[in-house]
């Protein structure tokens, strides 16, 4: 339980409680976008070294999607926020 993610709703929790989806910077193409745009969206990912924003799901906690900004080399965590826009949640 070494790596802790500070969930904005639940407080610090071990990474085992979370599911990582990956890069939070990718935007979904329009429904009628070309096949190569969809291919890139579904399959192609960078493998960045350093500071990176990712979607993490607090699966075994509040079940909210979060944006975790962390360093992929040191695992220093800079910020954790809810992925939903302000006022969107109950």
């Amino acid at each position: 339980m070494a790596s802790l993610i500070a969930c904005p709703h639940c407080g610090p929790r071990p990474k085992e409680e979370f599911t990582v989806r990956g890069d939070a910077g990718i935007t979904r193409p329009a429904p009628d976008a070309r096949e190569d745009a969809w291919y890139a969206y579904v399959y192609l990912r960078d493998n960045p070294r350093g500071r990176h924003k990712e979607h993490w799901h607090h699966t075994s906690g509040c079940r909210r999607w979060l944006i975790v900004e962390r360093d992929t080399v040191t695992h220093a965590v800079y910020a954790v926020t809810d992925a939903a826009a302000q006022g969107e949640t109950a």
């Binding site: 802790l4 639940c10 407080g11 929790r13 071990p14 409680e17 075994s60 906690g61």
Partner: peptide, 18 residues
């Protein structure tokens, strides 16, 4: 890993966890 100390986790508090 939830801190269950009374000061941090008073009567009535809940936490979903593993």
């Amino acid at each position: 890993a939830v801190d269950l100390d009374r000061a941090k986790f008073p009567v009535g508090r809940s936490a979903m966890t593993l």
